[in-house]
Amino acid sequence: MTTWTDYLLSDSPASRRQARLGQAYRKWLAFRRNPLAMVGLCIIVALLLVAAFAPLIATADPLAQNLDRRLLPPSGTNIFGTDSLGRDIFSRIVYGTRVTLVIVLLVVVSVGPIGLLIGATSGYLGGWVDRLLMRITDVFLAFPRLVLALAFVAALGPGLENAVIAIAITAWPPYARVARAETQIIRQQDYIAAIRLQGASQWRIVWKHVVPMCLPSLIVRTTLDMAGIILIAAGLGFLGLGAQPPIPEWGAMISAGREQIFDQWWVATFPGIAICVVALGFNLLGDGLRDVMDAR
């Protein structure tokens, strides 16, 4: 026990890997001191576990309809009640974590690198490249995200994949902006001048020296943004343009419960709580990460 903490916290690491691990461990120690961030982390870990073990956790088939048991209030057999087609709401929420995670992961994987590449290139090269890329960014930023996403989905046709594409297309501009602002500060630094004096190519400078400095703030921003991404996905689902029935998507579930909202409150309430909790989890995690990673 003590030997590996000694290994990680050593003042003079003996290898590249030990230095990296030690650095990560120090970050983890700082992160652990923030209780709210730990709550966020627990929520996200729980989300991952529920998604992974959904068949074990769900009490019924999320797609199985039973019109004899429609709109039943929460009880022992259906702990969150049943919806208008008699499907078990708890099981649908459990399977819905998979849909949510797929959306979040696809958006993050596509948006982060695009925003980073465009922002860092624009900020480092400056000149007409910067002007061109930033005007394109401004065009995307000028529209409200949900409205733009709506327009894209309307053009591409409703569906989960198209919703992801639409969200990704509308989500990258703020990342490019952040990366550009960071890059403009970083490129003035002496350590970038030093690497230029070693004869490094511009690509090498941007990728190996500028991008690592932009990463922490972008990771933080992505985590904070995930809440927004979930909400937009839910919004598209609610408007019928996201995941199509019978896929158990939380936004679409709220939408389906809209008609019964006064008489059968549970149909819309539980998916709403699920969205709320997951969004909160990502937000708390993002806040904690910011404290750890942005400390300069």
């Binding site: 350590y191 001048a193 030093a194 070693q198």
Partner: peptide
Amino acid sequence: YRAVQMVFQDPYGSLHP
């Protein structure tokens, strides 16, 4: 760049953090 190198004023700013 192999023939000419430079040492900067501020060692706090000239090393990549």
